[in-house]
Each structure stands twice: as C-alpha cells, then as structure tokens.
Design a protein around this nucleic acid. Structure first.
Lengths: 225, 225
DNA sequence: CGCGAGCTTGACGTTGTTCAACTAGAGTGG
DNA sequence: CCACTCTAGTTGAACAACGTCAAGCTCGCG
C-alpha cells in the first residue's frame, strides 16, 4: 500500500508526522476494500485496529440481544472509525458495516498510540476527527428522544441528503428495514410514511433513486417534533 | 484557589504537567460551588471554559424547542464536563446542570488548549476522561432505542444505584419528572411503574430514600428489553 | 421459470401519552 | 395558628401512536 496516495488520514499524517513515523505507520497498516454489507470492525472484538474510512459509507451498528439492530449513525468518508476505542481499551461496543463499497486503512492500535503519545498536535487532529461520529450519534439520540416517528424519518432523509450524499437526489443504499433501524421504528412505519410523502409530492422514489421535491415541507415536518 | 488541594483534574495535572504549566492553569481558572438546580454550562453559549467536576452530581441536559427536556446522561464526580467542546469549537450543545451541590473548576479553554498542544500524554488523559460521558450517553441511547419503558426505568434505577450512588439504598435527588426525562417517557409512566414495583416488593420509597429490595428481579426486568 | 428478498398494505392489539381531577406537604402572609 | 398557594406526586379513563401480524406483491437472479 502507498499511504501517500490516500486522502484524509494521509493529509493529517503528512501534515503532522515525521518521515520516520510515517513509515512506521505504513509498515503496521493495511488497506482493504470492503463490499456493501461487509463488517469492517465487529462488535465485541478486541480493539486491535483503528480504521480510517477513505471512501464509501459506513453504518455504526449496535446489535442487541433480541436480534434487534440499531443504527446509531451513518458516516461517509473521510472519517475515522473506532473512535470510542481511541479512548477506551474496551472491546468494540458497535460494529462498523459498509453500506457501500468502501476503502479502509486499518492501523494497529498500539503503534498508532505510541506515535500519538509523542505528537500531540497529531493526536488532537485525530481526536477531533474521531469525536465527529460521537457527536452525530448523540444528535440522532436527541432526535429519537424528542420527536415522533414521522419527524424522525424526515430528519434521516434530510441527513442523508445534506451530509451523506450532498444532493437532493441520491441513490438510497439503505433498505427500508435499515432506515427503520436508523429511525428506531418499524419498517412498516417507514414504508407508510414514504408512500404518503410520495402521494403528497414531497419526494419521489423510482427504484433506488430518491428525489426530494419539497425540501421546505420536509424541513417543516422535521421541526414539528 | 489552591489547585493542589483538589482531586481528579489535579491528579492528572500533577502527574503530567510541569510546574510552569500548572501555575499557568491556576491563573486562568476559577473554582465555584453550584447549588442543586444551578446551571454550570449553558446550552448555546460559547465554549469559553472547560469544567472539571470535583464533587457532586450533574445532569447532561438537552432542551428542545417544544420545551421538552431530555437528560442524555448523569455523571458523578470526578469527571470532565464539556467534553464535546474539547474537540469542537461549537457552542455548547447541552447544558450541564447540578442535581446536587457540586464543586467545579472552570478553566479557560484557550489556555488549556495551548498546554494540551505541547503535552500529548496530558491531552490523552483528558480525552479519555472526556469521552467517558459520551460513552454513557450512547449506552443510554441504546437503552432508549431498544427497550420498552419499563425496562428502561429499571436501567435507570440500576444505573443510579451502581454508578452514581454506589449503594442499593440512596437519596433520590431526581424528581419523577426528571426520571421521565432520563428514561424518555412521561412522568406518569415513571410513577405507575415505581408504584407497582413497591407493591411487588421490588423496591421501596420513603420520602426521597429509595431502597432496592429485589435486585435480581430488577435486573431481570432490565434484560427483558 | 421459479425462488427469495425486499417491499407494500390493512386490520388489529398493545403501549404509552394526554388530560383532568385529586392528595400531600412546604412555604407565605395575615 | 389558620387559610392560601404552589409544587410534586398520584390515579384512572380516554385516546393516539406505533408495532405486530398476515397476506400479497414486485423485481432481480439463478
């Protein structure tokens, strides 16, 4: 792997790391391609690696005892995954699962830690990246805690449009069931809401292509609470 | 204020900071006492300070547009507050409100940042402390997302017992309404559940004193989901 | 062509919220 | 010392929101 050809992590690494540390990380890391649906880091495993998402989209999935999943949040590249384990030595609390083909660099945790200990600007940059995911998960928590299902589904569509796909028209790579896991409601509820919104000409769905027609109305619904 | 007489933050500071930096922080910080109900850091304000909770208990409160509150989590000393703002320059996303009389050291953010930039072991220790709160909030999110109200109320009672008061008998400093804000349900629901548990001899409440009688049953209810 | 996963729909039952009325205790002022 | 008020807590009934279930549909793929 040639780290120098990569984006985000490389950018920070090039900016703040010595040639020596850079090479050290290169030696103790591996770049992998994950297909849609593949698990990058698995809930319950030991935190041997930190993952940098170079391209693609990943869900931050918690799998409960009653085989119910919850999607805490969704992130698109460039991001750092396994942020929780930058701070804890706990086993992974969640799984990171690719929902679109993704490129990931896995770096051995202990090597990265050694370098972070000697370079605080570098570590602060990483922490800032890592905590982004926490923040997003907590914003989703607030949405779940305070809003009715319909507003929450609106929140999710808006989130996908604004922060993941950066367009009012996008290829929806989540199934209805996954949307439901994200919104913390039943799949039927998602389906009914989306169908109604199609009738009301708030959005349209052809195959996997979702187009937001009436953005203002969607925002209005989101704010209803 | 004499920083050296304090606990947690001082412990880290003494361990990792030079005499010079220690004094610098002392100059740019202030120790305050907050009474029950007082706001330590207010949602929406600029993040001018980082707070260290030396003693007391604090709720991590989000205030929604529809004047509905959510308690994301609760922490007891020693902890670092305002963790989100160790990473972001955003305004505070939440309020930190004392639910029992608390001692807090407020340190100017920019001064602390300067020192963190030059001392990575120190910053890593702080990050670890700060992210504790995130982790707890996310665990609560998972509970909210996956469980029915009754299990969640059980979770909260267990959490208070195990992590906040460290006893099966404790003085409940939260009102029923606050318990409801924590469990994300209505106050009536909390009341009914607690009443029923009293009848079933799972716990007892006299005035503000709550005693868990049947811990196993409470854990069983929590696991039902 | 047939299979299966994902999607859709409506009926039904459960969970949890809202509302309204009531009680108890704490604080206030005459 | 007694109203008065205010807040927290309590209860039950009516209602809305949401999940579950069961059946049928569609589309892509072997």
């Amino acid at each position: 792997m040639d780290l120098k050809e990569q984006t985000i992590f490389t950018e920070i690494a090039l900016k703040y790391l010595s040639e020596e540390d850079f090479i050290k990380i290169e030696k103790h890391s591996v770049q992998l391609k994950f297909k849609k649906g593949e698990t990058i880091l698995k809930q319950g495993h030991q935190p041997t690696h930190i993952a940098f998402l170079q391209s693609g989209i990943v869900k931050f999935n918690y799998s409960g005892s009653n085989q119910k999943n919850t999607i805490l949040t969704l992130v698109s590249a460039p991001k750092i995954l396994g942020g929780a384990n930058l701070f804890y030595r706990d086993n992974y609390l969640f799984s990171f699962i690719a929902i679109e083909d993704s490129d990931v660099i896995l770096i051995e945790t202990n090597v990265l830690f050694e370098i972070m200990k000697t370079n605080s600007i570098f570590s602060m940059a990483l922490f800032q990246l890592a905590s982004d995911m926490f923040k997003k998960a907590i914003m989703n928590f607030i949405s779940v805690a305070n809003k009715q299902k319909e507003s929450r589904i609106a929140d999710i569509i808006l989130y996908l449009s604004e922060e993941i796909y950066c367009n009012t028209r996008f290829q929806l790579s989540l199934t209805r069931k996954e949307l439901a896991e994200f919104a913390c409601c039943s799949a039927e509820n998602v389906i009914m809401t989306l169908s109604r919104w199609q009738n009301e000409r708030i959005l349209s769905i052809f195959g996997k292509t979702l187009t937001i027609i009436d953005l203002d109305k969607l925002k209005y619904i989101s704010n209803l609470g």
